[in-house]
Protein backbone atom coordinates (compact mmCIF):
# COMPACT_ATOMS: atom_id res chain seq x y z
CA UNK A 1 0.00 0.00 0.00
CA UNK A 2 2.91 2.36 0.66
CA UNK A 3 5.23 3.31 -2.22
CA UNK A 4 8.94 3.84 -1.76
CA UNK A 5 9.83 7.51 -1.25
CA UNK A 6 10.48 9.58 -4.39
CA UNK A 7 10.96 13.16 -5.53
CA UNK A 8 8.07 14.96 -7.15
CA UNK A 9 8.20 17.76 -9.69
CA UNK A 10 5.38 19.40 -11.51
CA UNK A 11 5.97 20.36 -15.13
CA UNK A 12 4.48 23.58 -16.46
CA UNK A 13 5.07 22.89 -20.14
CA UNK A 14 6.14 20.05 -22.39
CA UNK A 15 9.64 21.48 -22.64
CA UNK A 16 9.77 21.84 -18.88
CA UNK A 17 8.67 18.23 -18.50
CA UNK A 18 11.34 17.05 -20.91
CA UNK A 19 13.98 19.05 -19.06
CA UNK A 20 12.87 17.69 -15.71
CA UNK A 21 12.67 14.11 -16.96
CA UNK A 22 16.09 14.42 -18.52
CA UNK A 23 17.69 15.94 -15.45
CA UNK A 24 16.14 13.51 -12.97
CA UNK A 25 15.98 10.33 -14.99
CA UNK A 26 12.48 10.02 -13.58
CA UNK A 27 9.14 8.90 -14.90
CA UNK A 28 6.27 10.99 -16.17
CA UNK A 29 2.97 10.72 -14.38
CA UNK A 30 -0.38 11.98 -15.61
CA UNK A 31 -3.40 10.04 -14.33
CA UNK A 32 -1.09 7.59 -12.66
CA UNK A 33 -3.49 4.69 -13.01
CA UNK A 34 -0.95 2.38 -14.57
CA UNK A 35 1.96 3.51 -12.44
CA UNK A 36 0.63 4.17 -8.94
CA UNK A 37 -0.82 0.66 -8.42
CA UNK A 38 2.61 -0.80 -9.23
CA UNK A 39 4.33 1.71 -6.96
CA UNK A 40 2.02 0.82 -4.08
CA UNK A 41 3.04 -2.81 -4.41
CA UNK A 42 6.67 -1.65 -4.71
CA UNK A 43 6.91 -3.31 -8.10
CA UNK A 44 7.92 0.06 -9.52
CA UNK A 45 10.24 2.39 -7.62
CA UNK A 46 10.95 5.51 -9.69
CA UNK A 47 13.29 8.02 -8.00
CA UNK A 48 11.44 11.00 -9.41
CA UNK A 49 7.95 11.59 -10.76
CA UNK A 50 7.39 14.45 -13.15
CA UNK A 51 3.72 15.39 -13.13
CA UNK A 52 2.54 16.33 -16.62
CA UNK A 53 -1.16 16.35 -15.79
CA UNK A 54 -1.49 20.12 -15.48
CA UNK A 55 0.43 21.06 -18.61
CA UNK A 56 -1.83 23.41 -20.59
CA UNK A 57 -2.91 22.16 -24.00
CA UNK A 58 -1.90 18.55 -23.48
CA UNK A 59 -5.44 17.36 -23.03
CA UNK A 60 -8.46 17.25 -25.29
CA UNK A 61 -9.94 15.82 -28.48
CA UNK A 62 -10.00 17.99 -31.57
CA UNK A 63 -10.38 17.69 -35.32
CA UNK A 64 -8.00 19.28 -37.76
CA UNK A 65 -7.35 18.62 -41.43
CA UNK A 66 -9.38 15.42 -41.58
CA UNK A 67 -7.51 13.99 -38.61
CA UNK A 68 -8.43 13.76 -34.98
CA UNK A 69 -5.86 14.72 -32.40
CA UNK A 70 -6.11 13.38 -28.89
CA UNK A 71 -3.88 15.04 -26.33
CA UNK A 72 -1.72 12.75 -24.24
CA UNK A 73 -3.38 13.58 -20.95
CA UNK A 74 -6.91 13.14 -22.26
CA UNK A 75 -8.69 10.75 -19.92
CA UNK A 76 -10.42 7.57 -20.97
CA UNK A 77 -13.69 9.08 -19.75
CA UNK A 78 -13.20 12.10 -22.00
CA UNK A 79 -12.51 9.81 -24.94
CA UNK A 80 -15.48 7.57 -24.12
CA UNK A 81 -17.72 10.62 -23.83
CA UNK A 82 -16.42 12.57 -26.82
CA UNK A 83 -19.22 13.25 -29.27
CA UNK A 84 -16.70 13.83 -32.01
CA UNK A 85 -15.18 10.38 -31.51
CA UNK A 86 -18.49 8.63 -31.05
CA UNK A 87 -19.67 10.09 -34.35
CA UNK A 88 -16.54 9.77 -36.42
CA UNK A 89 -14.35 7.17 -34.79
CA UNK A 90 -16.54 5.16 -32.42
CA UNK A 91 -13.97 2.41 -31.83
CA UNK A 92 -11.95 4.72 -29.65
CA UNK A 93 -14.89 5.74 -27.51
CA UNK A 94 -16.02 2.14 -27.31
CA UNK A 95 -12.62 0.78 -26.26
CA UNK A 96 -12.04 3.58 -23.76
CA UNK A 97 -15.42 2.80 -22.18
CA UNK A 98 -14.26 -0.78 -21.58
CA UNK A 99 -11.15 0.19 -19.65
CA UNK A 100 -11.18 -0.57 -15.93
CA UNK A 101 -14.10 1.10 -14.24
CA UNK A 102 -15.61 4.59 -14.06
CA UNK A 103 -13.10 5.96 -11.54
CA UNK A 104 -10.15 4.55 -13.46
CA UNK A 105 -11.50 6.09 -16.66
CA UNK A 106 -11.87 9.44 -14.92
CA UNK A 107 -8.13 9.57 -14.18
CA UNK A 108 -6.33 7.25 -16.60
CA UNK A 109 -5.03 8.85 -19.80
CA UNK A 110 -4.41 7.68 -23.34
CA UNK A 111 -0.78 8.77 -23.23
CA UNK A 112 -0.18 6.90 -20.00
CA UNK A 113 -1.87 3.79 -21.26
CA UNK A 114 0.15 3.71 -24.49
CA UNK A 115 3.48 4.56 -22.85
CA UNK A 116 3.00 1.99 -20.09
CA UNK A 117 1.98 -0.64 -22.67
CA UNK A 118 0.58 -3.27 -20.37
CA UNK A 119 0.39 -6.34 -22.62
CA UNK A 120 -3.32 -6.72 -21.75
CA UNK A 121 -4.41 -3.11 -22.06
CA UNK A 122 -7.00 -2.14 -24.63
CA UNK A 123 -5.84 1.03 -26.34
CA UNK A 124 -2.64 -0.29 -27.96
CA UNK A 125 -4.67 -2.63 -30.16
CA UNK A 126 -7.00 0.19 -31.13
CA UNK A 127 -4.09 2.51 -31.92
CA UNK A 128 -2.64 -0.17 -34.20
CA UNK A 129 -5.95 -0.76 -35.96
CA UNK A 130 -6.37 2.95 -36.58
CA UNK A 131 -2.77 3.22 -37.77
CA UNK A 132 -2.39 6.01 -35.23
CA UNK A 133 0.51 8.41 -35.30
CA UNK A 134 2.03 8.70 -31.88
CA UNK A 135 3.54 12.11 -31.52
CA UNK A 136 6.57 12.22 -29.27
CA UNK A 137 8.72 15.06 -28.01
CA UNK A 138 12.18 14.92 -26.53
CA UNK A 139 15.35 16.89 -26.14
CA UNK A 140 16.15 16.55 -29.80
CA UNK A 141 12.71 17.68 -30.90
CA UNK A 142 9.50 16.10 -32.08
CA UNK A 143 9.02 12.83 -33.93
CA UNK A 144 6.10 10.66 -34.92
CA UNK A 145 5.93 6.88 -34.66
CA UNK A 146 3.31 4.61 -36.15
CA UNK A 147 1.49 2.66 -33.46
CA UNK A 148 2.45 -0.71 -34.93
CA UNK A 149 6.11 0.21 -34.55
CA UNK A 150 5.73 1.90 -31.18
CA UNK A 151 4.99 -1.33 -29.26
CA UNK A 152 8.20 -3.31 -29.34
CA UNK A 153 8.06 -5.91 -26.58
CA UNK A 154 7.03 -6.72 -23.05
CA UNK A 155 6.42 -3.30 -21.48
CA UNK A 156 8.82 -1.99 -24.10
CA UNK A 157 7.95 0.93 -26.35
CA UNK A 158 9.80 3.24 -28.69
CA UNK A 159 10.21 5.99 -26.13
CA UNK A 160 13.66 7.10 -25.02
CA UNK A 161 14.55 8.48 -21.62
CA UNK A 162 13.41 12.08 -21.42
CA UNK A 163 10.82 11.61 -24.16
CA UNK A 164 7.13 12.17 -23.77
CA UNK A 165 4.03 11.26 -25.75
CA UNK A 166 2.29 14.54 -26.47
CA UNK A 167 -0.59 13.46 -28.68
CA UNK A 168 -2.13 10.69 -30.72
CA UNK A 169 -3.35 11.44 -34.25
CA UNK A 170 -5.83 9.21 -36.01
CA UNK A 171 -7.63 9.31 -39.29
CA UNK A 172 -11.20 8.68 -38.21
CA UNK A 173 -12.79 5.44 -39.35
CA UNK A 174 -16.42 4.67 -38.69
CA UNK A 175 -16.24 1.01 -39.68
CA UNK A 176 -14.02 0.02 -36.80
CA UNK A 177 -14.69 -1.90 -33.63
CA UNK A 178 -13.06 -3.43 -30.60
CA UNK A 179 -14.01 -6.79 -29.07
CA UNK A 180 -12.53 -8.13 -25.88
CA UNK A 181 -12.54 -11.23 -23.73
CA UNK A 182 -12.46 -9.94 -20.18
CA UNK A 183 -10.21 -11.34 -17.51
CA UNK A 184 -12.86 -11.62 -14.85
CA UNK A 185 -10.87 -10.18 -11.95
CA UNK A 186 -9.02 -7.24 -13.47
CA UNK A 187 -11.18 -6.77 -16.57
CA UNK A 188 -8.04 -6.41 -18.62
CA UNK A 189 -8.12 -8.20 -21.97
CA UNK A 190 -7.31 -11.90 -22.18
CA UNK A 191 -7.69 -11.30 -25.88
CA UNK A 192 -8.66 -7.96 -27.37
CA UNK A 193 -9.09 -7.40 -31.10
CA UNK A 194 -9.40 -4.04 -32.79
CA UNK A 195 -10.37 -3.87 -36.42
CA UNK A 196 -10.67 -0.91 -38.78
CA UNK A 197 -12.20 -1.50 -42.18
CA UNK A 198 -12.66 0.30 -45.43
CA UNK A 199 -15.97 -1.04 -46.69
CA UNK A 200 -17.67 -0.38 -50.00
CA UNK A 201 -21.01 -1.96 -50.85
CA UNK A 202 -20.62 -4.54 -48.15
CA UNK A 203 -17.22 -5.60 -49.40
CA UNK A 204 -14.13 -5.09 -47.28
CA UNK A 205 -11.68 -3.11 -49.39
CA UNK A 206 -8.94 -3.13 -46.80
CA UNK A 207 -8.56 -3.90 -43.15
CA UNK A 208 -6.22 -3.14 -40.31
CA UNK A 209 -6.15 -5.40 -37.28
CA UNK A 210 -4.57 -4.88 -33.86
CA UNK A 211 -4.36 -7.54 -31.17
CA UNK A 212 -3.75 -7.19 -27.44
CA UNK A 213 -3.67 -9.50 -24.44
CA UNK A 214 -2.45 -12.49 -26.40
CA UNK A 215 1.24 -11.78 -26.78
CA UNK A 216 4.06 -9.91 -25.02
CA UNK A 217 2.83 -6.68 -26.56
CA UNK A 218 0.12 -5.43 -28.86
CA UNK A 219 0.72 -6.46 -32.46
CA UNK A 220 -0.63 -5.94 -35.93
CA UNK A 221 -2.05 -8.94 -37.82
CA UNK A 222 -1.09 -8.11 -41.38
CA UNK A 223 -1.91 -11.58 -42.70
CA UNK A 224 -5.46 -11.36 -41.45
CA UNK A 225 -5.75 -7.90 -42.94
CA UNK A 226 -4.81 -9.33 -46.31
CA UNK A 227 -7.21 -12.23 -45.94
CA UNK A 228 -10.07 -9.90 -45.08
CA UNK A 229 -9.61 -7.72 -48.14
CA UNK A 230 -12.28 -8.42 -50.72
CA UNK A 231 -14.48 -10.36 -48.29
CA UNK A 232 -18.11 -9.83 -47.45
CA UNK A 233 -19.70 -10.69 -44.13
CA UNK A 234 -20.02 -14.34 -45.06
CA UNK A 235 -16.33 -14.65 -45.74
CA UNK A 236 -15.11 -13.24 -42.46
CA UNK A 237 -14.93 -16.46 -40.45
CA UNK A 238 -12.64 -18.11 -42.96
CA UNK A 239 -10.52 -15.00 -43.35
CA UNK A 240 -9.76 -14.70 -39.63
CA UNK A 241 -8.98 -18.38 -39.13
CA UNK A 242 -5.26 -17.81 -39.50
CA UNK A 243 -5.16 -15.01 -36.93
CA UNK A 244 -3.79 -17.08 -34.09
CA UNK A 245 -1.03 -18.59 -36.15
CA UNK A 246 0.11 -15.17 -37.20
CA UNK A 247 0.25 -13.95 -33.60
CA UNK A 248 3.16 -16.26 -32.85
CA UNK A 249 4.07 -17.19 -29.26
CA UNK A 250 1.04 -16.69 -27.07
CA UNK A 251 0.82 -15.73 -23.44
CA UNK A 252 -0.22 -18.34 -20.92
CA UNK A 253 -1.25 -17.54 -17.40
CA UNK A 254 -3.60 -18.41 -14.60
CA UNK A 255 -6.58 -17.07 -16.50
CA UNK A 256 -6.03 -18.58 -19.91
CA UNK A 257 -3.70 -21.08 -21.50
CA UNK A 258 -1.98 -20.41 -24.78
CA UNK A 259 -4.31 -22.93 -26.45
CA UNK A 260 -7.35 -21.09 -25.23
CA UNK A 261 -5.96 -17.76 -26.35
CA UNK A 262 -5.17 -19.34 -29.69
CA UNK A 263 -8.80 -20.32 -30.09
CA UNK A 264 -10.11 -16.99 -28.87
CA UNK A 265 -8.08 -14.79 -31.20
CA UNK A 266 -10.11 -15.59 -34.32
CA UNK A 267 -13.33 -15.43 -32.32
CA UNK A 268 -12.70 -11.90 -31.18
CA UNK A 269 -11.20 -10.71 -34.45
CA UNK A 270 -14.34 -12.00 -36.11
CA UNK A 271 -16.58 -10.29 -33.57
CA UNK A 272 -14.76 -7.03 -34.07
CA UNK A 273 -15.02 -7.34 -37.86
CA UNK A 274 -18.73 -8.09 -37.64
CA UNK A 275 -19.33 -5.14 -35.38
CA UNK A 276 -17.27 -2.90 -37.66
CA UNK A 277 -19.24 -4.10 -40.69
CA UNK A 278 -22.45 -3.34 -38.87
CA UNK A 279 -21.28 0.26 -38.55
CA UNK A 280 -21.24 0.42 -42.32
Amino acid sequence: MIPVAFDYQRATSVDDAIAKLTASGGKAIAGGHSLVPLMKLRLSEPGTLVDISKIPGLSGVKEAGGKIEIGATTTHAEIAGSKLLRDKCPILAEAAAEIGDPQVRNRGTIGGSLAHADPASDLPAVAIALDADIQIKGRSGARTVKAAAFFRGFYDVDLAAGELIVAVHVTPVRSAAYAKLHQRASHYAIVGAAVALDVKGGVIQSARVGLTGATTHAIRLAGVEKALAGKKADGVAAAVASAAGEAGDLNADLHASADYRKAMIPVFVKRAVERALARG
Binding site: L41, R184, A185, S186, L254, H255
Partner: peptide
Protein backbone atom coordinates in the same frame (compact mmCIF):
# COMPACT_ATOMS: atom_id res chain seq x y z
CA UNK B 1 -0.93 -17.86 -3.99
CA UNK B 2 -1.36 -16.97 -7.67
CA UNK B 3 -4.59 -15.12 -6.98
CA UNK B 4 -3.08 -12.85 -4.36
CA UNK B 5 -4.82 -9.60 -5.23
CA UNK B 6 -8.02 -8.31 -6.77
CA UNK B 7 -6.13 -8.24 -10.07
CA UNK B 8 -6.28 -12.03 -10.18
CA UNK B 9 -8.90 -13.03 -7.61
CA UNK B 10 -12.22 -12.08 -9.14
CA UNK B 11 -14.43 -10.29 -6.67
Amino acid sequence: LMTGSFMDYAM
